[in-house]
Nucleic acid binder design. Sequence first.
DNA 1: TTAAATACATAATAAATTTATGTATTTTTG
DNA 2: CAAAAATACATAAATTTATTATGTATTTAA
Lengths: 122, 122
Amino acid sequence: MYFCPMYSKEIIKGTLKPIILKLLEQEGRMYGYEITSKVKVLTQGKIQITEGALYPLLHKLEAEGIVITEQENIGKRIRKYYLLTPEGKNLATAAIDEFLDFMVTIKSILDPTANISYGNAK
Amino acid sequence: MYFCPMYSKEIIKGTLKPIILKLLEQEGRMYGYEITSKVKVLTQGKIQITEGALYPLLHKLEAEGIVITEQENIGKRIRKYYLLTPEGKNLATAAIDEFLDFMVTIKSILDPTANISYGNAK
DNA sequence: TTAAATACATAATAAATTTATGTATTTTTG
DNA sequence: CAAAAATACATAAATTTATTATGTATTTAA
């Protein structure tokens, strides 16, 4: 039985992993370059994933069985799609939920107006 | 003139700094152990700052002129209070704002329901 | 035809944090 | 009252995560 001791460290650190997991969950499959450009567009350039961070992480996720890959040849170029495994889907859901929860917690510290309650409701 | 290129790396990583700056801004002055226990209470134990992360960061902030210290003797024990300098106050405001903004951005990716708009309002 | 974009990858370095360890005082509890 | 837990600081080693730099090669746009 799991009794909420504390957020895991990786989630407090690093937003890259939850972002990737979310996008893969949503899009079905994506290739590396597509992830960086999608995030760039979604965030209006505010978040630009570097290749040095992305590719090693994708490889790690693959080694851990969280994603599998499908290679496709686009002309003479190789494109490597990443897909969540069934296990990866579970992990993705959990990781995203945990991160959203974490943000509520952080926000309650950084932005107390977000939590104003009226009356005696708690 | 500053034209939004991208979030700084430190803020994407590490929530510790914004948390500390926020608490100091709010409380006026705090000592290390007080910060850890306050965060623990505020987050119902979900965030537990380790001393190995806290003290080196506080020392760094002091070296950078973001905080100054006041020592007090409690019995035979020393208690070291940290206070924001005027420069530190500016930095605190900026860092907290940036972090809150960052969370909106991340949330728009991780939780698309948070951004549903009706009609053509932007 | 040249620059920019697409598409992958890895190595060296830097930064942030965890884990472990250390010292010492004060308070609580059995 | 003795032992455990809490208070209060600190640092060093190891780990994790990400940046920066570099490399290769193809395709598209200027």
